[in-house]
Design a protein around this nucleic acid. Structure first.
Lengths: 119, 119
DNA sequence: ATATTTACTACGACAGACGTAGTACGACAG
DNA sequence: CTGTCGTACTACGTCTGTCGTAGTAAATAT
């Protein structure tokens, strides 16, 4: 099965992460798994890409981190959770609008759909 | 009007250029204008981005260059024309298939479509 | 006891985009 | 004939995001 070269995705990692965070705070490992699930296994984000995205987005004010221990188990290991900020929501929505435009532009350069006559 | 940040496009510059070249050989300035036209003015490729893409794609064997003077006018100024190679056509088609996958993946992270209930 | 999974951090290399600048030719205005 | 504008590039350097490699450390499974 085909996988997607991540360079194509470049510019949408932040959007993917923010999408996951719109359904509640999460942390690195879980977000990574959610991205794999949501993309039906077609895309797996690299660890370093993920964590550098966290750093960048926190710096930009799109997410905020807090250290916490998971309450659902007796696990006492601390994790760094992230939650999306208001600026993050706005950025995500802006990215969604931009996606509509981008998709439209790129599709003008893709096959033209009804080009059957390749003899 | 909204314009698209080029970083989103990254990974599709080559595809756009190759699309233009599928309808015949062309050169820098003309390709630049064609990209602006095809995208309905929504995307303008930067000169340096364009020419560095030429260099990269020629190195990769996707395009070939030849110096020629335009025959439609009395202009004797020489231009560097590019035409797409067989490898270029295959690469373009591969990119088109990849686009379908990429679009599908990213759309899983966009708005979820029918999310009307944002109270 | 040891291996694996989870949960990170640090460092550095690389590629593509692009800002700035410069060259050079032709056309056209003043 | 001189300057400006449009055309047609080249060179150089910076920046950003991605990702390979490596290391640490706690929790969990074997």
């Amino acid at each position: 099965m085909n996988t997607i070269t991540s360079d194509v995705i470049r510019g949408y990692h932040d959007t993917m992460i923010l999408f996951i965070l719109t359904s509640g705070p999460s942390y690195g490992y879980e977000i990574s798994k959610r991205i794999r699930e949501v993309s039906d296994g077609k895309y797996v984000i690299k660890e370093t890409t993920l964590y550098s995205a966290f750093a960048r987005m926190e710096k930009n004010g799109y997410i905020e981190s807090f250290i916490s221990t998971p309450q659902d188990s007796g696990n006492s290991k601390k994790r760094t959770y992230y939650h999306i900020t208001e600026a993050g929501r706005r950025y995500y929505e802006e990215k969604c609008r931009e996606w509509i435009l981008t998709k439209d532009v790129i599709e003008h350069f893709i096959g033209k759909g009804e080009n059957h006559g390749n003899h």
